[in-house]
């Protein structure tokens, strides 16, 4: 199935605006109703968008697992906006990009450190980093940013 860029834009914008609003990326059957296309076409558009972006479907299913910077499957990176926690970030780095979807709002990232579970807390608002606790926080990855497509579900 072939899609125009405008058709993919429409689907992408709807998926993104819904996850920003609700914390959940819509299922293809929901996308179908939101933009008034057939379920089959909605699934096709999602599959194409996933090919073009560093997201992924849960292996062997038609469920969107990851739609960066967000994750439908919960991760340890909990995102709160203006005090309300209903989002999960794809990874620690994408957590730092969530702020661009919430202009003018305070985005709080809370996660346990993978060594010992002690908390990490970061607050950002647009260009500003408001809080980093502890102030020694670092990032590290052993896999390429953006990922090898074949391994995305497992990184």
């Amino acid at each position: 199935m072939e899609f125009s860029l405008a058709e993919l834009d429409e689907a992408y914008e709807t998926l993104m605006s819904e996850v920003v609003r609700t914390g959940v990326v819509p299922h293809y059957a929901e996308l179908s109703a939101l933009i008034e296309i057939s379920p089959n076409e909605a699934l096709g558009r999602i599959q194409k968008i996933v090919e073009l972006t560093p997201g992924w479907m849960h292996p062997g299913t038609d469920y969107i697992a990851s739609f960066p910077p967000f994750n439908n499957q919960p991760t340890q990176y909990r995102i709160s906006v203006d005090g309300e926690q209903k989002w999960f970030a794809q990874c620690g780095f994408e957590a730092l990009a969530c702020r661009w979807l919430f202009p003018g709002k305070t985005v709080r990232i809370e996660a346990p450190c993978l060594l010992g579970g002690e908390p990490l807390t970061i607050e950002m608002k647009d260009e500003e980093i408001l809080l980093v606790d502890p102030d020694t926080i670092v990032g590290y990855t052993r896999s390429p940013v953006g990922g090898d497509a074949a391994n995305r579900p497992f990184r």
Binding site: A6, E13, V20, G92, I137, G139
Partner: peptide, 23 residues
């Protein structure tokens, strides 16, 4: 953290809210 925050503030990440992002 600041280095990764700057990396994830480059245009590819800032523009995801566009209505024509894929284009």
């Amino acid at each position: 953290l600041q280095w990764w925050a700057t990396t994830f503030a480059t245009p590819m990440f800032r523009n995801r809210g566009r209505s024509d992002f894929i284009t």
